[in-house]
């Protein structure tokens, strides 16, 4: 610890600034998450992306019976996806950590399900209910 500049004031000031900045950052994150949990109205559509390409789009509101299908990607990696009315999830995968399976079923646009090893992302999109024609 032979630093030449040993003025204690300076690093204490830096530390204080850092703490303030981090607190603000944490607060912003909380607000961001909180705001995200609040918008789950509207029509739910699940978009399945692989390697950044949209490979399938499922309207979750029109699902009546749960069904499963398998998505195969590069290197023969496989993800088995189950679609239920209003939610979607990965039920089995051959990736090493199975984080995508642990994420369970999602029904909001808050967090997409991601299987990083297999480059698979399932994202729910909420379409605002702004109908073209309103009938009474």
């Amino acid at each position: 610890m032979n630093l030449t500049d040993t003025n204690p004031k300076r690093y204490q000031k830096t530390a204080l600034l850092l703490i303030i900045a981090l607190s603000i950052l944490a607060l912003c994150c909380l607000l961001w998450i909180w705001q995200g949990t609040n918008d789950n109205s509207g029509k739910l559509t699940a978009d399945i992306y692989q390697n950044g390409r949209l490979i399938q789009s499922i309207s979750l509101d029109s699902v009546e019976e749960p069904y499963t299908f398998t998505v195969t990607g590069d290197n023969d990696c496989r993800n088995e996806i189950e679609v239920r009315p209003g939610s979607i999830g990965i039920i089995s995968a051959d990736c090493p950590d199975k984080l995508c399976v642990h994420q369970g079923f999602i029904d909001t646009s808050l967090l997409p399900i991601t299987c990083l090893p297999n480059h698979l992302v399932i994202q729910i999109r909420t379409e605002d209910i702004t109908p073209d024609i309103i009938t009474y």
Partner: peptide
């Protein structure tokens, strides 16, 4: 790698 902007939803978490 995934080039899905939705991945950025993880940022606050």
């Amino acid at each position: 790698l995934t080039s899905v902007p939705g991945v950025l939803a993880y940022l606050p978490f």
